[in-house]
Design a protein around this nucleic acid. Structure first.
Length: 235
DNA sequence: GTCCAGGGCCGTT
DNA sequence: AACGGCCATGGA
């Protein structure tokens, strides 16, 4: 017995509703003209193994200092950048990673983010992965949430529920990603539909796993216990 | 005080 | 290929 990705999606959607990620600060965009894609990319780097509540503090600091823009990240003194993003943790390496990306966008795409996302998706993915500080999840988050590319994001939660529920007994990032994309694209063949469901499902997995399928799971209240082998084994 | 968070890199097997 | 140590803050 296993839970199909599409069934997981339907169940989570029914319980949580649409998430409409990436969680950008909408109030900010009313008062500013910065491209939200910058905020998504910067947030994707800042949230590496970090609680989003801490990332929000760093983002707020960047905004208050008008640095929520790749061009300004490129100009800012790195010591100042470290200070602003400090609440997000791992701030020494993350400052370098933000600098890396900003230099990359300037040198290779003339600071034009449309040029970046006009590139063929898997060519761009390979390129992002070659940057120091951009791994698979960060690259795919950038491609999906900023670039609207049909790429499913796998994270620690996805890996956990894959094994625990189970969905399919897979370990590697690529295998899990391929499996979800194969299953979901069967029902959603159009690119924009895939973007939408990959977007929603990843967001739903995050809130679901935070609430129930934690490292120490809260199975008693879990919304998918009936479909979960792990739950059936512990009762 | 302890645990953990929307990872990734690097060195060692 | 796979694994362990490391990076750091703030909330539960």
């Amino acid at each position: 017995m296993k839970l199909e990705p599409i069934t997981l999606y339907d169940t989570l959607l029914e319980n949580y509703g649409k998430q409409n990620w990436w969680p950008v600060d909408h109030l900010y965009h009313i008062n500013n003209n910065t491209d939200p894609r910058f905020e998504i990319i910067i947030g994707a780097i800042l949230t590496q193994n970090t609680a989003w509540s801490n990332v929000e503090k760093a983002i707020k600091n960047l905004k208050q200092n008008k640095k929520m823009d790749i061009k300004n990240i490129n100009k800012i003194d790195i010591a100042e950048l470290k200070k602003l993003i400090k609440p997000s943790g791992f701030y020494n390496q993350k400052a370098i990673r933000l600098k890396n990306f900003s230099r990359y966008l300037k040198n290779n795409y003339s600071n034009n983010i449309d040029n970046l996302f006009n590139k063929e998706t898997y060519e761009l993915r390979k390129e992002l992965l070659s940057l120091n500080g951009i791994g698979q999840e960060t690259a795919d988050s950038i491609l999906l949430y900023a670039g609207k590319k049909p790429v499913f994001v796998v994270d620690a939660y996805t890996k956990r529920i894959c094994k625990r529920i189970p969905i399919k007994n897979l370990d590697s990032y690529n295998d899990i990603q391929k499996y979800f994309q194969k299953k979901l694209s069967k029902k959603y063949s159009k690119k924009q539909d895939q973007v939408k469901i990959y977007n929603e499902l990843h967001a739903l997995i995050v809130i679901f796993a935070k609430q129930f399928c934690k490292k120490k799971p809260d199975c008693e209240m879990c919304i998918i216990q009936k479909k979960c082998k792990y739950y059936k084994n512990i009762i």
